[in-house]
Simulated scan of single mutants.
Amino acid sequence: MPSRLEGVSVPDSKIAREVTEFIRDTESDLLFNHSVRVYYWGAIAGNKQRIIFDRELLYTACMFHDLGLTEHYGGSQLRFEVDGANAAADFLRSHGIAPEQIELVWNAVALHTTPGIPEFMRPEIALVQAGAGMDVVGRGFDEFSPAEREAVIEAYPREAAFAEGIVDAFYDGMRHRPQTTFGTFNDDILAFKDPTFERIDICKAILSSRWKLDHRCGHDCDHAH
């Protein structure tokens, strides 16, 4: 791995090296390179904004953020983000990392597909989502110079068919647990790949809830109490 790219380097620590080895052995080339790029986009963005952040915790969160999409979780019924967050927490716990730091990494991984919240949380949490958004959909693309973009892509190639590949990776990691996509944009993936997929409609859920079906609870029930 290049020691330094555009003022950013992967932490040179025992934990970071073991994180790299673990994810390298577990994920496909597409997901591994994507995860490292997410770290570089997030760290470069953090430097540009003069944000103080823990590079080791950010790197760990970035590397684990899509682990839940891998074959190992083919039987899981949790959100894939939670699988990755739990794995990161277990890894850090086994290395004696403090609980508050473990919680930070857990939140960074678990919330990276939840828009509108991470950017108001701790820097590491915000930067994981920012880095993922840059790499997947180009969010903030023009905030990076051509030299920065080229340096990262040269070191960790973004395949010509990356867009199709990451959609497939999302689909393969979530198609066995479609109910977990509710409330995120992940249901867009299943709807795009599977014409039989039915989204959960929150309005239908409200209007057909037990409160609507149980006629004992309502205006009369309120007065009875």
Rank of each mutant, 00 (worst) to 15 (best):
M1L: 09
P2F: 07
S3R: 09
S3H: 07
R4Y: 08
R4F: 11
E6I: 00
E6F: 02
V8C: 11
P11Y: 09
S13N: 02
S13R: 09
K14M: 11
I15G: 00
A16M: 11
R17E: 06
R17Q: 06
E18N: 02
D25P: 00
T26G: 00
S28I: 11
D29W: 05
L31F: 13
F32V: 10
F32P: 01
R37L: 15
Y40K: 03
Y40C: 04
G42M: 08
I44S: 07
A45I: 06
A45N: 01
G46A: 04
Q49D: 09
D54N: 15
R55E: 08
E56R: 07
L57D: 06
Y59V: 04
T60P: 00
F64V: 11
D66P: 01
L67T: 05
T70I: 14
E71T: 13
G74E: 03
G75S: 13
Q77V: 15
L78W: 10
L78A: 09
R79E: 01
F80T: 14
E81V: 06
D83V: 11
L92Y: 05
S94H: 14
G96S: 08
A98P: 01
A98K: 11
P99K: 02
Q101E: 07
V105P: 03
W106A: 01
N107I: 02
N107S: 08
N107Q: 14
V109N: 03
H112V: 12
H112C: 12
T113A: 05
T114E: 00
P115G: 00
G116M: 08
P118L: 04
F120K: 15
F120V: 04
F120N: 09
E124G: 12
A126M: 05
V128N: 04
V128E: 02
G131T: 10
G133V: 05
V136E: 00
G138T: 02
G138L: 10
R139W: 13
D142Y: 08
E143H: 03
F144I: 03
S145K: 06
P146M: 11
A147H: 14
E148H: 03
E148Q: 13
A151E: 10
V152F: 10
E154H: 11
E154W: 09
A155E: 11
R158Q: 12
R158L: 14
E159Q: 15
A160G: 00
A160H: 04
A160M: 04
A161F: 04
A161H: 09
F162Y: 15
A163E: 12
E164S: 09
G165I: 12
V167K: 15
D168R: 13
F170Q: 07
G173V: 06
G173N: 01
Q179Y: 14
Q179N: 05
T180E: 14
T180P: 01
T180R: 15
G183A: 12
F185H: 01
N186L: 14
N186D: 10
D187R: 08
D188W: 15
A191Y: 05
D194L: 13
T196C: 03
F197Q: 07
R199D: 05
D201C: 04
A205T: 10
I206H: 08
L207I: 11
L207Q: 12
S209H: 13
R210T: 02
K212I: 08
K212G: 00
R216L: 06
G218M: 09
H219W: 12
D220P: 05
D220R: 15
D222Q: 01
H223N: 08
H225V: 15
